[in-house]
């Protein structure tokens, strides 16, 4: 065991409009671990995820990656992170392949062929079609395909299963498990109950909003 945890939150607080969403939050994640953040609407799940990506500044506390604050690491941290947020982050005017190529250019490209990636998320037939004409579930699958198109250790997922059908959810659950078996880290929020068949999860309940 290394002395410092891989991903660590120290004393995180988030205040919005004078209301503390959460305070003094501490947790650590080692490789191969997944954290599911639970709680009712408005309890700060999304805010916590955005603090972990560095998009939002915590009102107190720090997020550490290998013992270093993430805001000082910047690019060295971001090349380890893939974030799929509330918005899909895909361009409607571009095709699926063009979108994935852009995701690769912004991060660290994985060795997988992009056609294989699309095949894996059942979008192979849509490679060259414009994203604007696709359904919400298909766009979501494309957004999640970024996880496979890039080579990153930490997956931060805000409601990954929104608009997905049962079979897609099962497919992505399997992908999550494979990622954890390859020593990845996942932090996710979900209204759907996430359970992995073979691995244990950490759960964090942010509780009732005050």
């Amino acid at each position: 065991m290394p002395e410092t945890a891989l991903l660590e939150s120290q004393d995180l607080s988030c205040i919005r409009n004078d209301r503390a969403l959460f305070e003094h939050l501490d947790f650590t994640l080692e490789s191969g671990e997944m954290l599911v953040v639970e709680g009712p609407n408005g309890c700060g799940k999304t805010s916590l995820l955005r603090i972990l990506t560095g998009l939002r500044l915590a009102d107190s506390g720090e997020v550490l990656w290998r013992g270093q604050p993430i805001d000082r690491l910047a690019g060295d941290y971001y090349e380890q992170v893939t974030y799929v947020g509330h918005h899909d982050g895909v361009k409607h005017e571009l095709s699926c392949l063009e979108n994935l190529r852009l995701a690769r250019a912004m991060g660290v490209p994985s060795e997988r062929d992009l056609d294989d990636v699309l095949e894996q998320v059942n979008l192979y037939a849509y490679g060259d079609s414009e994203v604007g004409s696709m359904s919400a579930g298909q766009k979501r699958r494309l957004a999640l395909a970024r996880l496979l198109a890039t080579d990153s250790m930490i997956w931060i997922l805000d409601e990954p299963f929104t608009s997905l059908d049962k079979s897609s959810m099962a497919m992505f659950t399997t992908l999550f498990e494979q990622h954890l078996q390859r020593d990845g880290i996942i932090v996710a929020t979900s209204h759907h109950d996430i359970t992995l068949p073979t691995l244990a999860l950490q759960r964090l309940n942010l509780g009732q909003p005050a």
């Binding site: 560095g54 998009l55 910047a74 974030y83 409607h92 912004m106």
Partner: peptide, 22 residues
């Protein structure tokens, strides 16, 4: 505008490259 609305801006900010150059 459009990058902000559809979430692409977040992806750019989370890029491994310096944001100023992007």
């Amino acid at each position: 505008r459009s990058d902000f609305d559809d979430g692409s801006l977040e992806q750019i900010l989370l890029s491994a490259h310096p944001v100023a150059i992007l």
